[in-house]
Every structure is written in structure tokens, then in C-alpha cells.
């Protein structure tokens, strides 16, 4: 329960932050600046790993400054798994807020994904990356919901939102077709981060021996079957399966 409380606090402050940061910038406070594609906190540069892969392809050389910028996200993914998606991604936050409305929740969760395929996701990511290389245009961040949302938040504050906002509408629309479709298969940021996730990363684990009530599988937003598939590269450590488990023996717990 404490985990989900921390998660909710971080989520809501990030969602507020993407609007507050551009306002602070307009007041000439430049401590935090940038969008989720690339931002600075003080002097620490942090960038989306997708951005580095793309610029290496399109410019044809390796830039040390970009590599330095992905150190923090990469280390975060190596140690804590894909906490980016569950703690920071504003798209997840928006979906979780929308799902507070009962009829939307019912419509979206009506049909849960049967089976995730990590190969499908990797093939989609690699072919997108290949297309970026051929065209010489680093466009992948346009189809990453957190990047698109934070960029649009800046533009909304600047009073000039662009049509890319339709991508977010499309992503939410696709939820009705398949739960977290963009997150599971398209989002290049999430796919990229899952490359860093390894067997030692933070993840819920299943100890075996439980009531087999199936509550954990019912709440998992990524369509993972916690009793069978953990650790999974689709798991983004939201901790909802652990919270939902009613077995006193705690068969689902955080890996130590």
C-alpha cells in the first residue's frame, strides 16, 4: 500500500510538473527545463534512450554528450526495471485517471490481452528504427506518448498546441481496441527501456503456492499473468498485482 501511495504522489507531481516547468521557464527560472525527450535538472542532462539510438543512426557518428544523457535512465532501468512507465509516464497517469470513471474502465478492460509477445514488440521497434535510418529523420519520439504529451504540455502553455495532440487521442482510442496497445507494442521509449531490464532488476516475483484466485491477473494493466510469466519484460513495476493479492502467505512480493 505504501508503494502505491508513493507511486500516486510521484505520478501526480510529474503530471503537474510537465505544465509547471514551462511556466517556470516563462518566469525565467531555468532550473528544470525541457521535455521528456531531453531535459536538464540543474546541470544534469537526461535524455530518452530512443533519442540516442536515432541520432546515432541519422548523423552516422556517436555523440558522447548524448550517451552521457542516457546514463541515468539506463541505470534506473537496470536497477529498478521499467519504473519510468509506472511512475513517471504521464500517459499512464492520464489513463489511470480516466479509468476512475466506471464506464470507461468497463469498456477498456472488457477484453484483456491474451498473450504478450516480446518478439513482436522488438520487431516493431527495430523496423521503426530502420525506417528512421533510411529516411534520415529522427521521428520516433513523435509516436512515444510521454514525449508527445510533455511537448504538447509546453505548447499548450505557449498557447500553440499542434496536431500531434491527435496522436494521444488515437492512443486512448486504441485502448478500447486492446488494453495499453501503444504501451505494449508501439511506444519506443518503453521498448527501449525494457532492453535494459534484466533478471536482477526490481520486479514482483511469484513464490508459488497461492489461492489461485486470479485477482492479480485481473488488475495487471499490461496483460501479464503474474502467477506464470514473472519476471516479464512487459511488467512495469506498478505493484498492482501485489496490492490485489488477498492471500495471507504473500505469494507475490518484491524481489530483494
Amino acid at each position: 500500500m505504501r508503494f502505491s501511495l508513493i507511486r500516486k504522489i510521484v505520478q501526480s507531481s510529474v503530471l503537474a510538473g510537465i505544465f509547471i516547468v514551462p511556466i517556470l521557464n516563462m518566469l525565467e527560472i531555468y532550473f528544470i527545463r525541457g521535455s521528456f525527450i531531453s531535459f536538464d535538472i540543474g546541470s544534469a542532462a537526461i535524455a530518452d534512450p530512443v533519442m540516442m539510438f536515432q541520432t546515432v543512426l541519422t548523423r552516422g557518428e556517436f555523440a558522447a554528450s548524448l550517451f552521457a544523457a542516457i546514463v541515468i535512465p539506463a541505470l534506473m532501468a537496470i536497477f529498478f526495471g521499467r519504473v519510468w512507465c509506472s511512475f513517471f509516464c504521464p500517459y499512464t497517469t492520464i489513463m489511470e485517471i480516466l479509468e476512475r470513471i466506471p464506464f470507461i474502465k468497463k469498456a477498456i478492460w472488457r477484453k484483456k490481452p491474451v498473450k504478450n509477445s516480446r518478439y513482436k514488440r522488438a520487431v516493431i521497434f527495430l523496423s521503426l528504427l530502420f525506417m528512421v535510418g533510411i529516411a534520415g529523420l529522427p521521428l520516433l519520439n513523435l509516436i512515444s506518448p510521454p514525449s508527445a504529451l510533455s511537448v504538447q504540455a509546453i505548447l499548450i502553455i505557449k498557447k500553440t498546441p499542434t496536431v500531434e495532440i491527435l496522436f494521444i487521442v488515437l492512443a486512448i482510442g486504441l485502448e478500447f481496441y486492446s488494453l495499453r496497445f501503444i504501451c505494449r507494442y508501439i511506444c519506443p521509449t518503453g521498448t527501449c527501456l525494457s532492453f535494459f531490464v534484466n533478471s536482477r532488476s526490481l520486479s514482483p516475483i511469484y513464490m508459488g503456492e497461492c489461492l489461485k484466485c486470479g485477482k492479480c491477473a485481473k488488475v495487471c494493466p499490461m496483460g501479464v499473468e503474474p502467477t506464470a510469466e514473472l519476471p516479464s519484460s512487459f511488467c512495469h513495476n506498478c505493484g498492482q498485482c501485489i496490492d490485489a493479492c488477498s492471500d495471507k502467505r504473500k505469494p507475490l512480493r518484491w524481489k530483494r
Partner: peptide, 22 residues
Amino acid sequence: MRLCIRCARCIEVCPYRSLHRA
């Protein structure tokens, strides 16, 4: 066109609102 990652950071810092996103 090869380098611009479309991150909108230049648009964010522009104090005159001169920069627009295509």
C-alpha cells in the same frame, strides 16, 4: 533535419514566442 529530435526545448525557452512548432 538529421539532427533535430523535435524535443521542443528551443520553443520552450524562447521568451519572445518567436519559435513555432511545424
